[in-house]
């Protein structure tokens, strides 16, 4: 018994050393991605923003989606709830969308169709599906858990004026996603992703994400303008966040069927 205790003690010491030693010079790739996940998708207890998405096709045809997104975290890095109210285009005006996001399990998603007064449950098995017709997938909007990929710190380099860690990630279950690898440039100062490259199964660059504008809001660094370009089709989506507010003590009641059917008036303005 004493022997195992001692062996256990050595193991712990070895583990602590292995964590401490590289951290002094360079954080582990897993740690970078975990921090980036929290910085991008979990800032504050809750958040609300007016989002304008411009969807531009290769030939310059433009479509605009405007929505108010509210988010509330149940635990940091864990369960989250999203409530989305669509302002335009006209065929989705007054539609509301509710997501209960669980780590390690399919989301629960509900869509309310005002013309039919119908709350429709949406199958959420595929997170690669496009969000509202944009080049952002559901996963890009609400985050992909870092544990689903293996990560490798490749190098450090500057993106504009900002120093960044370059991390290469590969999915543990390649069948579950449409990328074979992803390269992320994570800002050393804010832990936000400044750039991401997605490579398809043939190893070709398929999508390119860039953080176009970063702002500090209530002490939280936020990507207020993000661009996702589908390199292969030439289609791109630009998402601009306005009126961003954190820690508004959003009521849990907002994330319910009642709110789906009758969203609070402040959302529809």
């Amino acid at each position: 018994m004493a022997v195992t205790m001692r062996a256990g003690g050595w193991l712990i010491l070895a583990a602590v050393l292995s964590l401490v030693t590289p951290a002094a010079a360079q954080p582990a790739a897993e740690e970078i991605m975990a921090k980036a996940h929290l910085a991008m998708f979990y800032p504050g207890e809750d958040m609300r923003a007016r989002v304008t998405m411009r969807l531009v096709s290769r030939d310059g045809k433009e479509r605009v989606r405007e929505l108010t997104m509210s988010r509330r975290d149940l635990q940091d890095g864990g369960e989250q709830r999203y409530f989305i109210y669509f302002h335009r285009p006209p065929d989705v005006r007054d539609m509301t969308f509710l997501v209960w996001k669980y780590p390690g399990k399919d989301d629960d998603r509900w869509l309310y169709v005002p013309a039919l007064k119908l709350v429709r449950r949406i199958a959420a098995s595929d997170k690669r599906s496009s969000f509202a017709g944009s080049d952002f997938s559901y996963e890009d909007v609400s985050g992909r858990e870092p544990e689903e990929d293996t990560h490798k710190l490749v190098r450090e380099e500057k993106v504009g004026e900002r120093g960044a860690y370059v991390v290469q990630s590969a999915p543990k279950d390649p069948a579950s996603v449409d990328f074979s690898r992803k390269v992320s440039w994570i800002d050393k100062a804010t832990w936000l992703p400044l750039k991401e490259e997605y490579y398809d199964r043939r190893g070709e660059l398929s999508r390119l994400f860039t953080a176009e504008e970063l702002k500090e809001i209530q002490g939280f660094w936020t990507v207020t303008k993000r661009l996702m370009k589908n390199v292969q089709t030439g289609h791109r989506s630009e998402s601009v966040l306005a009126d961003v507010r954190y820690n508004q003590k959003l009521s849990p009641d907002l994330f319910s069927e009642r709110a789906l059917r009758a969203p609070p008036a402040e959302l529809s303005r």
Binding site: R121, A123, S125, D126, S129, S130, S137, D178
Partner: peptide, 10 residues
């Protein structure tokens, strides 16, 4: 029973 067979295919 409703299921997403592939992205944007239900």
């Amino acid at each position: 029973y409703q299921r997403e067979l592939a992205p944007d295919l239900t």
